[in-house]
Amino acid sequence: MIFEVFRQETESDYHEHVGNVHAPDEEMARLFAQVMHARRKPANSLWVVPKEEISEVDADDPGVAMGGTTQKAYRWATNYSTGRMAEEIEASEAEQVEAEARRRSTRSEGGDD
């Protein structure tokens, strides 16, 4: 079975879709999701949902006018110009530093990890 996974970074964040896991059932899906989607980035909560249980309303569906597009906003900047030395490595590192800082501040604020 395929389960879609939504990760919430801190208590005050929304759950965001981060990918899926293949698992035989919900219990195993919850175990796998923790490693697959919350091992490197901070997570306060994960929603693990059977894929076929998700129904969707699309902005392009006939009669639907939600005013949105199918594009979504993403956390990380994507303007990677070329030329400078291994800039993408520095960028990746900066992202990780930021995620680590967030993880730490979440811990010290939250208390109940």
């Binding site: 698992a23 175990l31 796998f32 490693v35």
Partner: peptide, 8 residues
């Protein structure tokens, strides 16, 4: 046994 099982 599966990619997920591997990661775990």
């Amino acid at each position: 046994p599966t990619l997920e099982g591997d990661l775990a």
